[in-house]
Design a binder for these strands. Structure first.
Lengths: 252, 252
DNA sequence: ATGCGTGTTGCACAAAATGCAACGCACCTG
DNA sequence: CAGGTGCGTTGCATTTTGTGCAACACGCAT
């Protein structure tokens, strides 16, 4: 595609890790300093990169503004948010909202647990796609060929002994999930954390997002968490209804 | 500087206005379709641009991930330090930087007064939350319900006759502080010590930290200290600008 | 079939990006 | 204070790389 642009864009994730100086950027890109300088200057002009007082470069304000706008284009998030908050108030655990995009599953909203022990996650961060309950729901709804192709392409890291080990097992799991209309992750990502998740569907029945409730074993056992399933499904259905225009928010 | 990158980056704000197809992008860039195509493809590979089902392009969710990660790796303390030192050189008094965390306000940086009479404080030590100027700023920015809940939970020790006596008085003080955008502590913690403080805000306008200048009566009167307010606010604004990655041009 | 509006590909040419080497500059260090 | 080291920065010759063109492919409506 375009080498120059490709290099320039590679700078962004690099700076997301933290500020870096010209030399570091040039090294990690594998280009001459002068080349890196010109790329950084261009990024700077567009406000995507900022030069702090110690001369090092970091991501700039413009990027935050763009991210904000990108968010606003995802209207599921806006509709879902109030429901997620309410669910969190009812059960107290961490609530996540995720979408599938370009072979990745991304968290796009999160309401923190009210318990002191919290699970780590980050809005915008790609999800552990082979084990996360929300990922199973989103992938289970893909057309067959796409699903198979993706399953073959993925890595299957064994986060724990319960992680999905290979494509075959994953595809079987996705079939089950599609069948039952909900999904779980019982210690597949981190030994002590369990999730239950339910799908959010658009007017045409396609899964547009998925939401989950997560809690560590020390707070509730997996069995206890599973008793929340009806509540989670009801919340997801409420969001689906509002998203597809069936149930205006005012009526609830 | 770099034409190709420049063109590619110009696509982002364009798509921020709303989804567009190849032709529209090419037109607005003033380039041939094939050129626009290659640029879009490169952006796409980096996840900054997403191709929706109707083939049109829009901003991708990856932008989040970047912005979010960058935020997380930002260190107010690191960015603020040089500014605090400069402020101390200009006025000579003790300068503090504080953040709110888990129902407490903590000093995270300090530059000592150059006068022989110093006030006692320690980095990492919780601040007298009901009276300190920095605490007022940080709490004033909390969401209403959280602020009320916290105000009720706190103790109101009468360090001096001017200490905040109760939740109602505290909430009133916080409203004033939020309104005016700065705060003071005039002998509320120790009879002879006054402070002026200003907030430091992130890209989203949220108060992420607060800074203050403190001095005992024997060095400067409260009125004299207040004349430093513009300087303190300017410093805080400079830190805010740098923290949120604004370019000088956008800063005005 | 036919025409129109898309997006997409291969290619020749020219422009634009690259790496180099040299310079400026601030900061140490002996 | 001379000399050295580690940065960022600049001008320039070289050629890689991006560009626009024209042609093609595809879907859709007429």
């Amino acid at each position: 595609m375009s080498q120059t642009v490709d290099r320039a864009l590679s700078i962004l994730p690099l700076l997301a890790e933290g500020p870096a100086d010209l030399g570091q950027v040039a090294d990690r890109l594998g280009v001459h300093k002068s080349t890196a300088l010109r790329l950084l200057r261009t990024l700077h002009e567009h406000g995507l990169v900022y030069r702090q007082s110690d001369q090092r470069y970091r991501l700039g304000a413009r990027l935050f503004a763009l991210a904000q706008e990108a968010m606003e284009n995802l209207d599921v998030r806006e509709i879902a948010h109030a429901h997620l908050v309410r669910l969190n108030e009812e059960c107290g655990h961490t609530v996540h909202l995720a979408v599938y995009e370009e072979n990745e599953v991304l968290y796009i909203d999160k309401v923190e647990s009210r318990y002191p022990v919290r699970m780590y996650s980050r809005i915008g961060k790609p999800v552990a796609i082979t084990v996360a309950a929300v990922a199973k729901l989103l992938l289970a709804d893909l057309p067959e060929h796409e699903r198979r192709a993706l399953a073959e392409k993925l890595d299957y890291p064994m986060y724990t002994s319960r992680s999905t080990p290979n494509p075959a097992a994953f595809l079987r799991e996705l079939d089950t999930v599609r069948e039952q209309g909900w999904a779980t992750d019982l210690g597949g990502h981190e030994e002590s954390i369990n999730c239950v998740a339910a799908p959010i569907r658009g007017a045409d029945g396609k899964v547009v997002a998925a939401m989950s409730v997560s809690a560590p074993n020390v707070v509730v056992t997996a069995d206890e968490l599973l008793t929340l399933l009806p509540l989670v499904r009801r919340t997801a259905d409420a969001i689906s209804g509002e998203y597809s225009g069936r149930t205006p928010a005012e009526l609830q």
